[in-house]
Nucleic acid binder design. Structure first.
Length: 899
RNA sequence: GGGCGGUUAGCUCAGCGGUAGAGCGUCUCGUUUACACCGAGAGGGUCGGCGGUUCGAAUCCGUCACCGCCCACCA
């Protein structure tokens, strides 16, 4: 073997991944007796490429999967991608535009063919990138939400919900994206703050020349569709108008003034114009008062007059059909300007105020959404939400961190009907067919629909399938079971549903988690997962959201190229605290790359010193205190790592590994072991140290493998712990008993503190490193003789000592001194140390202790404390005081000796 | 307008009822044969403000301030 001086991730990582994958190490085994462990990947968009958010979520998932796999679970990490209706259609349309083509001229079939072709060519990018990250997905099981099998699941679900009355068609206002020309759900609307105006418009009162009611609006262009003015029934001033009629300016329509609670006397002018076809609230008012609901904007959000043509009237100074007709076909924004100008000209504009407000925009198209009166398919989410809420309330599904349950409840308890139809081509076509008279037949396929039609009409009729497709999230919502073969009764469905953990970001709780809960409970009768682990967002080092426009996007693949996937993964684990966003920059990855290198070099040192796995080694039989101490510390680290992973504390898991490798194994164990491995050392001791080092290094590799699979597997293979590529399949280690652990701890603790103390004194006294000195121990404990004997060489090396002696007489004049428990440690360095500085140092130490002792004394003098505090706390304080007093006395003695 | 989260060392963050911690950065020292992507040592905080509960509060409660997010009918 002989390890290279540097770990070369670019060479090692792809090679190991290929080995694992081709050896089937990521595969689940539906026939095994092991307890399954299931994580469904949140399917990334086929259009996507790996970004930092992916790196975060997939690192976490992979860490969990590898951990559980090592625990002997039959792990299924289900891979796949999402067809992402709008996003993908937009990408391909953009592509077509560069070729001078347009989907409408191509026609539906040709367009879809083109999308599939695009998917075949470009859709695989993200799966390659996932491999580069090290994600141990069960690739042969990869699914796509538009696969034939998944499409069957979609139709099955749709038909079932339709038959149960949970899916239905309805004509009502919907959020319409005038750019994408499709309906979108409430969730796809994002409110953006926009600086606009509040226009106060005078509506003359019919039959009362000179009288008028003033309404305020941010959207004057919708007034063409006004069919009422509403005031609050109890409005002190305006209530008197209720029952009268107003003349709608420009249009000349006579509209009622109605009393309605919706009109808030505090807002605007207290009177509000009602445009039922273009405002959600106005729609409700319109329903209550049985108002006409003319649409005055078309699907592009341009003005259309078709539904008001017949009411246009000419009223001098108020309304003019000629003007209104000039608006036809204009955009809503152009119409707004024109209408405002005309109102001003007619002196019907009372005033204009600047006004900042939230305007709903389509999250994909980026333009303001227009409420539009259309017929769409809806899902009765309110009904489906009930069992989902109950499942979280009862703890059947648990959120980690728990606080997210509140978010889930808040949304689910007030959930609105879910608009599931989209006027797109790319997606699951709605399995509904219409007869010549518009009669709707919902069926699994056309043949079934035809049979229904036959029965309904008594003869064969031509049917036309619904043109619309389903919201992408409808099929994603079935992911936890559609990927397993449902509605077929496969053994995978029986075995891997419900899943164990779902890992995702909080931004997806409503879109996806909630939908999976609702659809899973409905179709499968059980929750889709037991635990939902919610992580934060990846941000840049300054805490800003990564975005293309800010230009602060970090490409994880670039980081992997430079630092290795392990370095990126470990960084992510280390920074992933509970419920926190992850601030990640290149410098952090560079920092943690140092840890990977440290581990590599520790292994190199072991290799150079003949450390090799020894199958016959029994940790319980280790004799050397150093070995016992290390084995014991490894047990502790292992327990910490295990507990952290069980609790989804990836930061603590990483910290436990970091601490143990760097601070325990490298800083102390390897340094203290050097003399034992040196030439001339006792061969039996050396052998035990080597075997122990090999044993513990193996544990470290296993313990860290879930987070940093590549470097650990490489070392595992190179040391020959097992056949190539076998670490991934080893069993998660458990603590092994260590004889005499307590004694070893006490001894090593003493040695470590002694060395630290001497180093500190020497440094503070500016003793040149080249100058060695004896270490003299006064009032040393009985065990010190043995210890000094055992650790002489190590202490000499590490504390720059020429000798270590237990002193029988007094400390030589001019020594630097320090106190270690009951022992005074002296470094006879007469002439090398500045006595005045030494006096200051000792006095400072003494005063620091004295201040602490004083605080403890005061505490113990408090009768309430002694009476009420738990006994062990009181005892601990007494102890502390005694120790402090004894050390103060020794420091005082040391000071007097100097004088 | 509701709700949630945050405010701890220069930076990023743990700790969440018993005398303030880590990593990185800073300063000093160091070519000791694993590692300068290193080693040794040091400095650095009235734990956002104010009240309260408690023998004891960074930790629990109340309140205020600022920062961030989510939800909510574009008068």
């Amino acid at each position: 073997m002989t390890l290279d001086s540097r770990f070369a991730p670019a060479e090692v990582e792809p090679r190991l991944y290929e080995e694992w994958e081709s050896a089937g190490k990521f595969a689940c085994d539906p026939d095994s007796n092991a307890q399954p462990f299931t994580i469904m990947i949140p399917p990334p968009n086929v259009t996507g490429s790996l970004h930092m958010g992916h790196a975060l979520t997939f690192t976490i998932q992979d860490t969990l999967v590898r951990y559980r796999r090592m625990q002997g679970r039959d792990a299924l990490w289900q891979p796949g991608t999402d067809h992402a209706g709008i996003a993908t259609q937009m990408v391909v349309e953009r592509l077509l535009a560069t070729e001078g083509k347009d989907r409408r001229t191509m026609g539906r079939d040709a367009f879809l063919e083109r999308v599939w072709q695009w998917k075949a060519e470009s859709g695989g990018a993200i799966t390659r990138q996932l491999r580069r990250l090290g994600a141990s997905l069960d690739w042969p099981r990869e699914r796509f939400t538009m696969d034939a099998g998944l499409s069957v699941a979609v139709r099955e679900t749709f038909v079932s919900l339709y038959r149960d009355g949970l899916i239905y068609r309805d004509r009502r206002l919907v959020n319409w994206d005038p750019k994408l020309l499709t309906a979108i759900s409430d969730l796809e609307v994002e409110n953006r703050e926009v600086k606009g105006h509040l226009w106060h418009i005078r509506y003359p009162i019919e039959g009362e020349p000179g009288a008028s009611i003033i309404v305020a609006t941010t959207r004057p262009e919708t007034m063409l569709g006004d069919t009422a003015v509403a005031v609050h029934p109890d409005h002190p001033v305006l209530a008197k108008f209720i029952g009268k009629r107003a003349i709608l300016p420009l249009v000349g329509r006579s509209i009622p003034i109605v009393g309605d609670d919706y009109a808030d006397p505090e807002k605007g002018t207290g009177a509000v114009k009602i445009t039922p076809a273009h405002d959600f609230n106005d729609f409700e008012v319109g329903r209550r008062h049985d108002l006409p609901m003319p649409s005055v904007l078309d699907k592009q959000a341009n003005v259309t007059l078709a539904e008001i043509e017949d009411v246009l009237a000419s009223i001098p100074g108020v309304a003019d059909p000629a003007f209104v007709r000039t608006l036809a076909g204009q955009s809503r924004f152009a119409a707004r300007s024109a209408i405002v100008a005309e109102l001003e000209r007619l002196e019907l504009l009372d005033k204009v105020e600047p006004h900042t407000h939230q305007v709903p925009h389509g999250d994909r198209g980026g333009v303001p959404v227009e409420p539009l009166l259309t017929t769409q398919w809806y899902c009765n989410a309110g009904e489906l939400a009930k069992p989902a809420i109950a499942a979280v309330e009862s703890g059947k599904t648990v959120f980690v961190p728990k606080q997210w349950e509140n978010t889930f409840f808040a949304w689910m308890r007030d959930i609105q009907p879910w608009c599931i139809s989209r006027q797109l081509w790319w997606g699951h076509r709605i399995p509904a067919w219409y007869g010549p008279d518009g009669q709707c037949f919902v069926a699994h396929d056309e043949a079934e629909a035809k049979a229904q039609a036959q029965a309904h009409y008594g003869r064969a009729e031509a049917l036309a399938q619904d043109e619309d497709v389903l919201d992408t999230w409808f099929s994603s919502g079935l992911w936890p079971f559609s990927t397993l073969g449902w509605p077929e009764k496969t053994k995978e469905v029986a075995r891997y549903y419900p899943g164990d953990v779902l890992v995702t970001g909080f931004d997806i709780i409503f879109f996806w988690v909630a939908r999976m809960m609702m659809l899973g409970l409905r179709m499968m009768g059980d929750v889709p997962f037991r635990t939902v682990y919610i992580h934060g967002l990846v941000r840049d080092e300054q805490g800003r959201k990564m975005s293309k426009t800010t230009g602060n996007v970090i490409d994880p693949l670039a980081l992997i190229e430079t630092y290795g996937a392990d370095a990126l993964r470990f960084t992510i684990c280390a920074l992933t605290g509970p419920g926190r966003d992850v601030k990640l920059g290149e410098t952090r990855v560079n920092d943690y790359r140092g840890f990977i290198t440290k581990l590599w070099n520790a292994a190199r040192f072991c290799e150079m010193n003949g450390v090799a796995p020894d199958a016959g080694f029994d940790p319980a039989s280790a004799k050397l205190p150093l070995d016992r101490w290390l084995l014991d510390a490894a047990n502790t680290a292992l327990a910490e790592a295990t507990a952290a992973l069980e609790a989804y504390r990836f930061d603590e898991y990483a910290a436990a590994g970091y601490r143990f490798v760097w601070n325990t194994f490298c800083d102390w164990f390897l340094e203290l072991a050097k003399p034992l491995l040196a030439e001339g050392a006792d061969p039996a001791d050396a052998a035990e140290v080597r075997a122990t080092a090999a044993h513990v290094l193996g544990l470290v590799l296993q313990m860290l493998h879930p987070a940093i699979p590549f470097v650990t597997e490489e070392l595992w293979d190179r040391f020959g712990y097992g056949p190539a590529g076998s670490l991934i399949g080893t069993a998660w280690p458990s603590a092994s008993p260590v004889a005499g652990a307590e004694d070893a701890r006490v001894e090593l603790d003493w040695v470590v503190r002694l060395i630290g103390l001497v180093r500190s004194v020497r440094n503070e006294m500016n003793v040149p490193p080249s100058k060695t000195s004896p270490i003299l121990l006064r009032d040393a404990p009985p065990a010190a003789m043995d210890r000094v004997d055992r650790w002489m060489e190590a202490i000499r090396r590490m504390a720059r000592a020429s000798d270590v002696r237990v002193l029988s007489g007094d400390v030589p004049k001019g020594s630097a001194q320090a106190v270690l428990d009951e022992t005074t440690v002296a470094l006879p360095l007469e002439g090398l140390i500045d006595l005045a500085a030494e006096r200051t140092r000792l006095a400072r130490e003494r005063d620091k202790l004295a201040a602490e002792a004083k605080k403890t004394e005061a505490k113990l003098a408090n009768a309430d404390f002694v009476r009420r505090a738990p006994e062990e706390v009181v005892a601990e304080n007494r102890d502390r005081l005694a120790t402090a007093r004894s050390e103060i006395a020794r420091l005082q003695a040391a000071l007097e000796r100097l004088a």
